[in-house]
Structures are given as structure tokens and as C-alpha cells.
Amino acid sequence: MAFFTYIERYPLASSAVFFILVPLFVAGLRYPQFNVAFRLLFIYLLLDLTVGLWMMYLAAHRTNNILLLNLFVPLRYVLFSGMFYYYFRSALVRRIIFYSILAFGPFALLDIYASNRNLSDLHNHLVGRYSQVVESVLIIFWVLLFFYEIIKTLKVSNILGYPFFWVCAGLLIFYSGNIFYFPFWYYTNTWENKLQVGLIDDLPFVVEIISLSLFSIGIWHTRSHHDDLYS
């Protein structure tokens, strides 16, 4: 009952979670055509839905759910950067991505610890201060580097039919829309919320819905696209 009350009270936040079903449904149709990168995206979508529903459930029962978000951030970075690791062929770029994954995990855990000195107090748990910002900078960098590769190599004949382009567009919108807002999550997501940012509070859900729509387009296009950036 509390769950449905929560949905009623926070329709936009709930919609963002349920909207994950759209790309997941398309992914179910296109799964046989998926390469490694899109399988990682599929895993991300499954995890995102699970974490989203779990967080909604906890929020509906007035339980602090931020620990889930904090743990999801490094996992999300591993999956997204893994997709770029698959698409880039340059050994140097791949090595940098690999080291960034190795470095980001411990950094995110350290950030959680630094933001929540008393980890046993789950009730007053806070969002990590820096990990999401660093994650945004890194992912935006990989997306822009990938766009540069597309322009440089000119191997993609129809960019609007190129699946990973849409995924990159979704990632760029998501992280660009949140990069300035992420630092404030530490202050806004508390029990005694003293900082009210109004409409901006809804922004993450809006950009998430937009990015999920773009992911869906990308997944849909995996049907018959054979262009390889480095073929």
C-alpha cells in the first residue's frame, strides 16, 4: 500500500523507474543481435530497474536507501566504460579506460566512507560527494572521444541508424543534465533537508527518461546495423 502511495506522491520519480521497462522490452526483442557492449547495457538496465524498484520500496517505507545508490555508482561506471572499452580499438584508450575502472571503484568506496564517517548509522547515510561528478566527467569524456572517432574514421555510413551513437547521445544527455546537480545531492538528500532547489529536483528524472528513450532507439537499431568503426 505504501508503495502505491509513494508512486502517487512522486509520479515523476516513479515514472523514471518504470520507464526502464521500455528499453528492456526492446532489448528483449533484439537480444540475439547484441554485441558485448549492448549486453553490458542490458545488464545495466536490469540492475537499474532492480535498484530503482528497491529504492522506491525502501523510500515508501521511510527507510534510507542511499546506500544502494552509492554502491550502484561504481557498478554503473564499470558497465558504461566497459561498453566504451569494447567500442574503442586504440590500445592506449583501452588501457586508460581499464585503469579508470580500476581506480574508480576504490575511489567511489573511499568517497562513501569520507561522506559517511559512521557507516553503521544507515539511517543518516548520505550520497557520496564526488564519485558521481567524477563519473560524469569521465563518461562525458568517453562520449566526446567516441564522437570524435566517428567523425575521424567516417566508417559509419548512416549515423542515425548506428545503435551506439544513440546510446552515447543518451549518456551525454544524462550526465550533462546531472553534472552540476550531482554535487548538491549530498546536501539535498538528507532527512532534514535544508536546501530546497525546487524544480531542479525533478531534473534527474527528466533526463533519465530522455536518456532511456535514446537507449531504446539505439537498441532498436541493433537489428540490421553492421557498420564497424574500425573495419
Binding site: I173, S176, G177, F180, Y181, V197, L199, I200, L203
Partner: peptide, 11 residues
């Protein structure tokens, strides 16, 4: 926040 986010989204 509004200005920075809008600018970022436009970019």
C-alpha cells in the same frame, strides 16, 4: 544550477 544545467544540456 538552472543556468549551468541548461548550458550543459544545450552544449
Amino acid at each position: 544550477l538552472m543556468i549551468a544545467t541548461s548550458a550543459m544540456l544545450i552544449m
